[in-house]
Write a protein that binds this DNA or RNA. Structure first.
Lengths: 242, 242
DNA sequence: TTGACTTATATGTCTAGACATATAATCGTA
DNA sequence: TACGATTATATGTCTAGACATATAAGTCAA
């Protein structure tokens, strides 16, 4: 909940300068649009060289707290309220972080030529082979989420022979295909018969849906749909408005 | 969808060095754990001074793409799959971005001494005054979301006299209380009678719920619950696994 | 083998300069 | 007054050094 460390306990000068300025911005002493002191003024105030001041200001600019304009100076930016940091843990990590025991069960696994529906879901045009996986995650033996996943074998051929009966496909992919990009869509549905049975909830009960589409350098990797019973998921966002 | 700009079109040397390395990391040529060349090796390769190389590597470290260890070198980090960038636009921005007409309607506004429930929702202990606001957002005259908000007047006294009949409280707060922090919780519910009527959907239909709790320097600002009909919301995350 | 000490080395920070460049502000002119 | 050219200035990038410091690796003794 604290904003930043105090300037005093910064061991190095440029960090102290950065913390000084950051504190004034985050407390509102210097509101959005405020011009912060010029580099040469800070040089004088802190009795250091311009490169030291420049390093502090460059980092603040990289963190989008200030905007720097040639000849004009450096200005406090308005918070980017449209973006926030979302924390979606790997399901196993999510469950063990709660101090609960993690359980995993492979429900089904099929290797097949991509159907039209598969290609649509993966966003690819060419036909190819895919693995379709259905599995269930549980916490303390209680169903936590069901997962329905498609992996594009033309991008991840190893997935054809991977053993998903013990390791969840999400964890497996994490270790075999790092540094991917993803797009998430969140929505809500009511449980149908199959979902209700898989999650051990009533038909018609609310479910949270997270669809994740993952790619890497313009190659589709996987598409997954996660269904959670209507319980909440926590996210934490910093430096936003409203 | 493209990972980064090519190194060639970087106008300055340190940006070119940074882009060169970033590209090798993101394409997987240098996998997590890989030791990237030492500063003195890069100095030789690019024919520049160490400060220039250092600036490139420092920025990569600040972006969490690499980890730097004294005496050991610099190493490609594993992707932080547990965090992603969430884009939650201001509702008005969200609707206008879709090219639809935005509508706003204040349903109710009450100024009162905080009840026990209010204090619990705001996470404050001391009793004080609050404003409770209920309103509805629509897109092309169709209900888009209903909002139920509490503002702590001890932190935002101006909210007592603000006119929320024309400006949504979220937008008002954005302009009056910048640089806040927030925590989000997402969940799913089924619509009860009141919700169903407000959103013009059937009783029992699924709804997406976003609860947002906002503070600033250890002072609570506002708590809001947004209810959307079960339609999806898109988020975009970069550089994740799984 | 283990633990303590020493050494080598890569990064971390900083300096006092330099020239480049975008642009706000000024000045001059039509 | 409006527009175009000039100038001043803050930031952007870069250099060739310096010393500090954490720590991997090697050394030596118990």
């Amino acid at each position: 909940m604290n904003l930043t460390a105090d300037a005093a306990d910064q061991p190095t000068l440029y960090k102290r300068i950065r913390a000084d300025i950051e504190k004034r911005i985050l407390t509102g002493e210097w509101p959005p649009g405020h011009r912060i002191p010029f580099e040469h003024e800070l040089v004088e105030r802190y009795g250091c060289s311009r490169m030291t001041v420049n390093k502090a200001l460059s980092e603040l600019a990289q963190a989008d707290l200030i905007e720097r304009r040639r000849r004009a100076g450096s200005f406090v930016r308005r918070p980017q309220h449209q973006s926030a940091v979302l924390k979606i843990a790997d399901i196993r990590a999510e469950i063990t972080a709660l101090g609960r025991s993690y359980g995993y069960e492979l429900v089904g696994r099929k290797l097949r030529a991509a159907t039209a529906a598969d290609r649509d879901r993966l966003g690819v045009k060419k036909a190819g082979k895919v693995v379709a996986i259905t599995c269930r995650h549980s916490a303390d033996k209680v169903p936590f989420a069901v997962e329905d996943r498609l992996i594009d074998l033309s991008s991840v051929p190893d997935a054809a022979t991977a053993d998903f009966s013990r390791e969840p496909p999400g964890s497996w992919l994490l270790h075999h295909v790092p540094w991917t990009e993803a797009e998430h869509t969140i929505s809500a549905i009511v449980a149908d018969d199959r979902t209700a049975e898989a999650l051990d909830i009533a038909v018609g009960a609310p479910c949270l849906v997270i669809d994740r589409y993952t790619w890497r350098s313009a190659r589709t990797i996987t598409a997954v749909r996660l269904l959670y019973p209507g319980v909440s998921h926590r996210l934490v966002a910093r430096f936003k408005g409203g």
